[in-house]
Structures are given as structure tokens and as C-alpha cells.
């Protein structure tokens, strides 16, 4: 059974080491701020995703231990909310807006173009780990529809062509270096 396989690293040991782990600083700080109350779960998961880019099983096990929450509850919350991801993100992030204004302005054709060219659907990352495609509901830039976020920059008035170009630039940049 799994517990045997992990015998060297009991939940307690692993939790103890994480309380001091600098990578877990944010996560620990949020839990402490909330007095380790169970209602801090969502805030803590946010901190974990900010720190690691995604929420791993190991992190969930740790949070469950520290907040005295059932493992299944932590997993349920992490998968109920679509903002959380359990998969490591790609190096670059393209968040396509699928809000009403962007949809009627043709966001779907952009999504199709990306899927065709790079073989990824929303929620997936290219096999080389370069690009993650995500979707969002309204970026609040409806006036510039269709809009998307490329890494951290919001861009508007997109067409399949200029989006593909942007993604290609990311790829080419890799080839250069």
C-alpha cells in the first residue's frame, strides 16, 4: 500500500519539513494568518498556485494536514473551482477570452486556429511544455473584443492571424536560444 512505500516520509515528517521550507513561505503565511481555520482552504490554495504555478498532490496533502481537513475535501475544492489547475503550466500562457462580446466578435475561430496549428485545446499545454492555452470569461476589455492575455499583457482586436503570429514568436524565440 502507498503508506508503506512512503514509510520514510511520514505525513508528519513531510509536514514538519514544509513548515520551514522557504518555497512554502506564502502558503504557511496565509494559513497562519487565518489561524489554521478550515475556512482558509481556498485562500491557501490560491497561495499554493501562486507559489508553484499549480497545485500538486503533495501540496494538497500538506494543506489537508495543516488545516485538519479531509484529503477528499481538499481535492474536491481544488477541482470544483476552475481557476485552480493541477497540471504544471507551460512556459508561456495564452488566455483567450470567451466572454459574450468576444464570442460574437469571433473568439471561437481564434480558438480553432490555435487548436489546429498547435494541437492544444483549452486547458492543455503543448507537448514541449512551451505554450498553455486557457480560456476566461470576460477580461473586462469587451470594447477591444476579441481579447486575450499573452503572458501578462492584455491585447485586443485580435484575429486568428495575429494570434498565431504571437504564439509562433514564442516558439521561434525558443529556437533562437
Amino acid at each position: 500500500m502507498q503508506t508503506n512505500a512512503e514509510a520514510v516520509d511520514t505525513p508528519l515528517d513531510s509536514a514538519l519539513s514544509k513548515t520551514k521550507d522557504p518555497q512554502y513561505r506564502m502558503v504557511n503565511r496565509i494559513m497562519c494568518l487565518h489561524n489554521y481555520q478550515p475556512d482558509a482552504l481556498i485562500e491557501t490554495l490560491h497561495a499554493a498556485q501562486d507559489s508553484f504555478g499549480c497545485i500538486t498532490l503533495e501540496t494538497m496533502r500538506y494543506i489537508s494536514h495543516m488545516l485538519h481537513l479531509p484529503l477528499s475535501r481538499v481535492y474536491a475544492v481544488a477541482t470544483f473551482y476552475h481557476y485552480f489547475t493541477l497540471k504544471p503550466p507551460g512556459k508561456h500562457r495564452c488566455v483567450l477570452c470567451m466572454g459574450t462580446a468576444c464570442y460574437i466578435a469571433g473568439a471561437e475561430s481564434i480558438e480553432k486556429a490555435i487548436t489546429e496549428k498547435h494541437h492544444i485545446s483549452p486547458g492543455e499545454t503543448t507537448s514541449d511544455g512551451e505554450i498553455s492555452l486557457l480560456t476566461a470569461r470576460c477580461l473586462g476589455s469587451c470594447g477591444l473584443a476579441p481579447a486575450a492575455i499573452f503572458d501578462d499583457k492584455v491585447m485586443g482586436q485580435l484575429t486568428p492571424k495575429n494570434v498565431l503570429k504571437q504564439l509562433q514568436d514564442w516558439r521561434d524565440h525558443v529556437a533562437d536560444t
Binding site: 475556512d39 482552504l41 481556498i42 475544492v77 470544483f80 473551482y81 485552480f84
Partner: peptide, 24 residues
């Protein structure tokens, strides 16, 4: 309190569940 991408959390009883750290 931060939401986490669930439209249903605009509903009154779901928002409360979410604030309590539960699925909305």
C-alpha cells in the same frame, strides 16, 4: 475573499459556502 472561477458562487448560498472554504 477571492473567488476561484465559479459563476455559481454569485448565488447567495454558494457564496457563503465558498467563504467557508467549501465547494460553491
Amino acid at each position: 475573499r477571492l473567488g476561484a472561477g465559479a459563476f455559481v458562487c454569485g448565488e447567495e448560498t454558494a457564496i457563503i459556502a465558498s467563504i467557508e472554504g467549501l465547494p460553491g
